[in-house]
Structure formats: structure tokens, C-alpha cells
Design a protein around this nucleic acid. Structure first.
Lengths: 332, 332
DNA sequence: TTGTAAGCGTTATCAG
DNA sequence: CTGATAACGCTTACAA
């Protein structure tokens, strides 16, 4: 491996001068600078980040923990975070939590152990009351899902408002028996409960009675589970004319499950999702959905994290992404 | 920050003994080991990876460069690579190349600069003849797409065989005017040309004449482009009864585009894709596709890369993933 | 403007 | 079995 010493010898200067050139510091004469740069080019020298890190105590790496990178929503989000971090000179190492509290705790420990400069955690199961969350002052930004009650910087989804708008839209389209397909964790404050609240709020506002028979819970927020829920929902004697799916991925499963049963969307049943994944526009029928501003979220999360790195004691903030309701075929 | 020294002082032993305990090395008496472990627990000590890296010269990080992490295919692949690397004690840092040769070259340089232990590169544009590819002995494994003629370890897709099987399947279903929707880079040896060859081979084997009017090229392998191609393809006087799409993502666009034009799949036109992304099963209609063994590919890539790290001089190998043809609604 | 010395936290080596 | 010492490549502080 080519080191600074090698370059220094080649250029006939000291290690320190090479360091100064590499870091664009003032106080190096032009001829010397040129000689050093030439030596660097010739030798193919590259700074050793580990060595630099050892001195500075920073790795330049941000951890990003998501349930599953393969899911379109998190892939999409990750892409934005990577871009945004790159702009601020950080690299992103991705961790998969498997959508389980244990995985989420582990991601924190891991990020810590690897001395990442901070962690953006998209937690979906971890509870604000989890004892393993003992605050260590390590920079963590919670992204999008659970609510941790002011304990961490938090970039939230417009869970309640968005679902309320989507549900109201279905009502406006004439739906009267609107099912919701959502996760089974209906306690606590999390993405599932918040969106459920939004659904209830829209019903209440429009004077519709919530019907327990219209609540379809699933264990995992996957396409498979959405499909299975649609099968249950399309069973005899339900008379459902609208479906609010907790995520677009679930909605995609619902669309598929309704097709399995020969039900037409939007003819027989209208469907809305949440997230606006890139695929939503290309589904058949195209999916109406709540579109939070993903880029905004990624920017905010990275901004908060870098802010916290430099000012660890700062008060935590809570930010909710703006959203639009994108109306497509599935609800019109 | 808690260091080994702190732990050593706390346990009343030397730094070296702590190191031995941390690394599970033999030659530490049980009582001392216990004392040290207790001191580690109390102090919250974590090894400093940078320091270890500085000594060992290895970072424990593998770079993974893909065109776009948000695309389902690459997200899926990345998930497998991350899992497989984790099993071998490596972390994965993801780089996005934007599906451009410049981005791919940059990913190599970047991986180098950051002293990642190696790079898995899913190149789609970089040419085997690119002068910037001057061999430096840095461990690189090419994944899935371009063919680099023995210059690198290469885990290839079954491009030709897979597309041939898919096309033959359409013919067996009675299709006679089979269009192909593929990229515009029809020169050189790459994913587009290889799959086109497979398409031609199937036609030849079944005695069908290739018709230039049935070749629809697109600039980027996206859903949008697939949709636009479907619109062209469904124009007046084409009489197309089958479509081979170069990837599932493109196929999803094609399905959407055909729906736009009121054509029914498989009633009017049959469609097959390539990749078997998780969404394929949930499209409406569900998509018939070539399913390469993604896990196998990820395993092989990581295995080759770690192999090359320990034996840099070894001959390069070329491996092609096994595949299955998954027949679903879109072609039956 | 350039160079020298010390040390970041860890581990390999070798002595006790 | 345990410990002292010297690196790994770089940067900070200071001296020339």
C-alpha cells in the first residue's frame, strides 16, 4: 500500500507537506504543491480513511436501518438518503432489521460498534418504552414510522392526515362500506394505529359508523398478506365497496387478491394505498395513494442527523412530511 | 470514548490481555477473562474498528455498486448480497451508478479510495474495452450484466438461455408475431444483446422469421419506457400476439401500456419478462418470467470476492446462474 | 513555508 | 499465562 511517506520520499518533502497538499491547506508553495501532486499521481496514492478516522474519531459513514431493502418503499427511501448523505460527504451503510424490534435494537448496537457517525432508523416495531433504548447520546434519527414521543429527532409520515384524506376521498366517491387492511399492532403509537385513527376520523367527520367487521388485520405488511386479506374481504356477505390499504405494497396485494376473486377495481370496489411507491402508477388499475414527499423526508433526516452530530445536546425535533393525495384509476 | 486502556485499568490487567479476551484468543485464564468481560460490560467498551483496520489493513466492508437501489430487481439482489456478506462477517456499502459507464468507473475508484476490501459491480454500461478499467489487482467481481471476457470474476445471468426459453414458451402457446422490447445498445456483449440473441435463437429453432418491425428499442430499462413501447407496439397494423420484455420492470410498463390501449393479456397478447422480481407474482395479470436464482448469484459473488481477497493472483472464473421459467397468467 | 514529534486505539511479537 | 513495546498511516501542535 502506498502511504504518505512514500509520496513524501518521491516528492522529496516531508509527510506533513503531503498531508497539507492532500487536505488543500494553505501554506504550501506552488512549486512544492505541484511536485507533491505529481508524486501522488505517479504513485497512485490514496488517503487511508481508517488512519484519518482514528485521529478524527469520525468514520464518515451513516447507518441506515430499514426493515427490508427489497421493499419498494424502503428502496426508494434509501436511494434518497444515499443521495442526500453523499451531498454532505457521508457514505451510507445499510442494515436490515427484518421489521422486528430485536433487529432494530441490534441495528443500533451495530451502528454503535462500527462507530458509524450516526444512525437513521426506520423503526416499525420498536416501542418508545423499550428498556433497551436507554439513551446514550448516540446520534439517532427516527424515520417515518413509530413515534418516540420526543425522545429522538423524528421525521414522521403524515400518517393520520394522509389516511384521513384518502378515506374521505373514497367517501366522496360514493363508498359507504369502507374496509381497512392494516397491521395487527393496534396498540401503542405506531404507523398502524396512526393510520387507523385517520381512517376513523374521516368516517366520523362524514357521519359514517365504523364497523368492526370492516377491519382486516394482517401480520406483516406484505403483498402476500394483502392478497390474503382481499380474499377474506371478498368473501360472501361483506358488501365492501372501498378499501383503505395501510401501504402501497399491501394495496398491491389487495388489488391482486380482488382480481383473484373476479372483482373489478374501481367498478366493484375502490382502493387507495399509502406511500406512492414508483410502481403505484403502473399497477393495473393504477393505484390512488397518499404521496408523502420522500425526498423531503430524506433531506430532513440527514440534516437532523448531521446537526445532532455537531450539537449532541440540542433539543429533539418532530417533523412531519408534507403529502399529496394522488388520485388514479383505482378510486375513480 | 472508552478504550482498551480504560478496560485494562478497570480490570487491573494489561491492554494486551483485554485484546486477547475481546478476540476470543486462547491463553487467558478463566478468572482473568471473567474480570475483563465484567470490566467491558461495566464500561460499555466497544472495539474501535478504525484502529483495528489500521493494523490489519482490512476494513471489513464490501462495496456493492448497482445502477439504482430503488429498482425492485437490484433491491432484491442487494438484500441477498447483504445477507450473504453478513454471514462472512462483512458489511456492505451501497453505491449507485445511475446505469452509466462514468458512474461505474467512479464506483470502482470510490471503493478503492475508501479502502473497501472489494467491490461487487453490477455494470450495465461499462465496456470490457474501457481504457479506464486498467487492472490494478483490486478485488472486483462483476455481477449479472455485462460480459468482461475473462478479465474479472463474473457471475452471469442466464441471459441467452433464459430469453430463449421464454420466447420458445410463447411460441408453444401459439404466438407467431412476437415482439421484443429491449434496450437500444444492440452492439457489444451486454445484457441487451445477449437476451436479443436468445430471442433470435428461439425463433430460428422453431422456424420463425425475425421481423425488424417487431424490435422495439427503448433508451432506459424502466417502467415508463416499457409503457411507451407498448403504446407503439399496440399501434395500428402491428398484429403482435406476444411480447418478450427484457426485464420484469420493463414488462410491468408493457402490461400497463397494453391496458392503456384496452388490449387484454393474455387474451389479445401474451407477455413474458425476465428477473422474477417479487412483484411479478402480484401484477394483474401475474407475470410469466425467467427466474434466475438470485440467492445463488449473491452467494457466488460474495464467495468469489472473498476468495479473491485472500488469493489475488487466482484465475478469474465465469459462472452462470441457474434459472427456471415461471409460467403465470400473462402467457397462458 | 516546511519539518519534527507525539499520539489516535489496536494488535503482533517477543520477553517475562 | 501475562505484559511491554513497537508499529499501522495520519494529523495536531509546535519548532525551525
Amino acid at each position: 500500500m502506498v502511504t504518505m511517506n512514500d509520496v513524501a520520499r518521491l516528492a522529496g518533502v516531508s509527510k506533513m507537506t503531503v498531508s497539507n497538499v492532500v487536505n488543500n491547506r494553505a501554506g504550501v508553495s506552488d512549486p512544492v504543491r505541484r511536485r507533491v501532486l505529481e508524486a501522488i499521481r505517479q504513485s497512485g496514492y490514496r488517503v487511508n480513511l481508517s488512519a484519518r478516522t482514528l485521529k478524527s474519531g469520525r468514520t464518515g459513514i451513516i447507518g441506515l436501518a430499514v426493515p427490508e431493502i427489497r421493499s419498494p418503499y424502503f428502496g426508494h427511501l434509501a436511494a434518497h438518503v444515499i443521495d442526500e448523505a453523499a451531498q454532505r460527504g457521508f457514505h451510507v451503510a445499510i442494515e436490515q432489521t427484518g421489521a422486528a424490534a430485536a433487529g432494530e435494537i441490534e441495528a443500533i448496537a451495530h451502528s454503535h460498534t462500527l462507530h458509524f457517525d450516526g444512525l437513521i432508523l426506520s423503526a416499525v416495531e420498536l416501542d418508545r418504552a423499550d428498556p433497551r433504548l436507554a439513551g446514550t447520546g448516540y446520534p439517532i434519527v427516527m424515520l417515518g414510522e413509530q413515534d418516540f414521543g420526543g425522545r429522538f429527532d423524528h421525521v414522521a409520515m403524515p400518517n393520520e392526515e394522509g389516511t384521513k384524506a384518502a378515506t374521505a376521498h373514497l367517501i366522496d366517491q360514493g363508498c359507504r362500506r369502507i374496509a381497512i387492511v392494516t397491521g395487527s399492532a393496534l396498540k401503542g403509537v405506531n404507523v398502524v394505529t396512526r393510520r387507523y385513527q385517520g381512517y376513523l376520523a374521516a368516517l366520523a367527520e362524514r357521519g359514517l359508523e365504523p364497523d368492526p367487521a370492516l377491519l382486516f388485520t394482517i401480520d406483516k405488511l406484505t403483498m402476500e398478506a394483502g392478497r390474503a386479506a382481499a380474499h377474506r374481504l371478498a368473501g360472501p356477505g361483506r358488501e365492501v365497496d372501498g378499501v383503505v390499504a395501510v401501504t402501497d405494497t399491501v394495496a398491491q396485494g389487495v388489488l391482486r387478491g380482488l382480481a383473484d376473486r373476479g372483482l373489478r377495481v374501481p367498478g366493484d370496489i375502490r382502493v387507495v394505498g399509502f406511500d406512492d411507491i414508483p410502481e403505484a402508477e403502473f399497477m393495473v388499475p393504477s393505484l390512488s395513494t397518499v404521496a408523502p414527499d420522500h425526498r423531503w423526508m430524506a433531506e430532513k433526516a440527514v440534516e437532523l442527523l448531521t446537526g445532532r452530530m455537531s450539537a449532541p445536546g440540542r433539543e429533539t425535533g418532530e417533523y412531519t412530511a408534507p403529502f399529496e393525495l394522488r388520485i388514479r384509476e383505482s378510486s375513480t
